[in-house]
Design a protein around this nucleic acid. Sequence first.
DNA 1: ACCTGAACACCGTTCAAGT
DNA 2: ACCTGAACACCGTTCAAGT
Lengths: 199, 199
Amino acid sequence: VPTPARTSIDAIVIAGRDILEAEGLDGLTMQRVASAVGIRAPSLYKRVRDRRDLVRLIVEDVSREFARILDGAAVTGSPQRDLRALAMAFRAYAHEHPEAYALLFARLPEGARPDAELTARGTETILRTARSLAGPERALEAARTVVAWAHGFVSMELAGAFRLGGDIDRAFAFGVDRLTISITAPPTGSEVRPPSHGG
Amino acid sequence: VPTPARTSIDAIVIAGRDILEAEGLDGLTMQRVASAVGIRAPSLYKRVRDRRDLVRLIVEDVSREFARILDGAAVTGSPQRDLRALAMAFRAYAHEHPEAYALLFARLPEGARPDAELTARGTETILRTARSLAGPERALEAARTVVAWAHGFVSMELAGAFRLGGDIDRAFAFGVDRLTISITAPPTGSEVRPPSHGG
DNA sequence: ACCTGAACACCGTTCAAGT
DNA sequence: ACCTGAACACCGTTCAAGT
């Protein structure tokens, strides 16, 4: 006699995200997720291969949400303002969903790593904006510089690594302004090299 | 009858670092560390309060090593070249000790967090070099921008987040050059603001 | 003073048995 | 077809007992 399903993969992913944000990745246990959807842990294995597979589904969900939010931020009409808006939206997302955000850039074990194409889509908007500012040849390097800075900044912020005081908001604004200038106006005609002392 | 000690806190930290680098943070178990120093897991609690305390001791050891390496890199005589040398040494350390490096910037639970002063010493050399380039008023923001970028870059690199091809070494060099220019030559006399479209 | 086995409350995961 | 309890091999941690 077939038993009707008491839950669904969607409900499991939603419950998993809630538990992740409330308890951290270590607190995301099969037992807690199972309990949240009204079943026992062994039954979860009917829907996911193992815990890593559940983490993968959650990361992919987060990844789609993050890409959608960044996409919605780059609508100012100017690439300079778009880059600033992207940086602000990037940081705001990390503050609102610190555990989900951390997962986006985490070194995940094989089996928990999200689909490669889906991950690429996450930085598509930033790449497009960087291309507008830096030109097609430098687009990829410019985008990597900006994303690296933004990720480094918010991950240090979330880790409590800025311990020397000062205005963190101002430091973030400083960074995005300098980076915008920096990738917008390359030294004309010359190879990139360290500046001479005279400047 | 007192029993002579069969191990020491130093031996435990050294063994812990080896296991961390070989097996990752999840693989750093009390049982493995105990076994590596020739005792049983419960005996570890004579030397450390709990696992988080052991992690703290390891992070602090890594932190001292990292600071020492950065300090040894900033010896070129010019702040521009020092910044580049610091960035290269920063990245090289992360490549050589990926698990130890990850711990330096990780969101650690209370009890595993290293001594605050010790952590500050880690970025002291970078702060000093940034001060030479950006001036005393902008030193902190400039240092934060550079460290954020460097950390973001190598952590993305280690996470396998650069999936769009291109030359990663070149992107790193691009970033350090642009950032050096960017923090060295602020717009004279004016407040920092987003650049106008013309430039 | 240091070390240990046994125990406890957790994990993830498998599997035979239930409906 | 789905769900479960029982079981297994792990965790971190405590503690009485051994030397």
